[in-house]
Simulated assay, not measured.
Amino acid sequence: MPAWPGGPCPQCGEDMPANLVHCQTCRALLNDDLEHDTVEIPAFHPLKELSVHCDAYPVGFYFQCPDCKKELRVHKKYLGKKVSCKFCQTPISLSLRSKQTKSFGFYTNCPHCREELRIAHKYLGTVASCKFCHGHIQLLEKPADPVDS
């Protein structure tokens, strides 16, 4: 089947450039060898919906004071530093792996609705759902912030 050589459309007479299938004006087929039913339309297969999730990192941690046993909410910037308990003023060296201080979990903000979430350490690295907006969140442990020298 030769390509359309160009010239006037057989139906409307408008001049058409070469290698067209349909007339740009009246949409008539320009090649007699082609028919409207020669093109197969593929079957429609809907794609599986993907659940979108956003990454969330710990903003801070919950620790238990080794002396008064009260719960302390501490921002992550204080990890590895000495702080004092706001209830009994006991000096505490904050570390997630320390035997002196026990960490209950961490807190972060939902990237979808900005509500604060309290999460246990065992959920780090998993995908969870926000209890407020039900948005999917991947809970990741962010690398340590760079230290200025």
Score class of each variant (00 low, 15 high):
S103D: 08
C65Y: 01
K69R: 06
A43F: 05
S51G: 07
K70P: 07
L29Q: 09
F44I: 06
C54N: 07
K82E: 07
E40Y: 10
E49N: 07
C54H: 12
A43C: 00
V83H: 05
T126P: 09
V52R: 14
D55V: 05
E40V: 10
V127K: 09
E35F: 11
K102S: 10
G80D: 04
G105C: 07
R114S: 12
T126K: 15
S51L: 06
A56F: 15
E49R: 08
Y107R: 06
L30A: 02
T126G: 10
T90M: 12
H53L: 12
Y57N: 01
R73I: 15
R114P: 01
L47C: 12
Q100S: 06
A56I: 14
E116A: 08
K77Q: 13
E40N: 13
A43G: 15
T101C: 02
L124P: 08
T101Y: 01
I92N: 03
D37W: 14
V83I: 09
R118N: 15
V52L: 06
F87K: 04
V52H: 15
C113W: 11
V83R: 04
E49I: 12
L79F: 03
K70D: 02
R97V: 13
N31S: 12
L50E: 13
D67L: 07
F61E: 05
F61V: 10
L47P: 03
K76R: 15
K81I: 07
A43V: 00
Y62S: 12
L34W: 08
C113V: 14
K86F: 08
T108Q: 06
L117K: 00
P111Q: 11
D32F: 15
S51E: 14
L96Q: 02
K81P: 04
C85V: 04
C88A: 11
C85S: 02
V39Q: 13
K81N: 13
D67W: 07
D67N: 14
A128N: 04
D67Y: 04
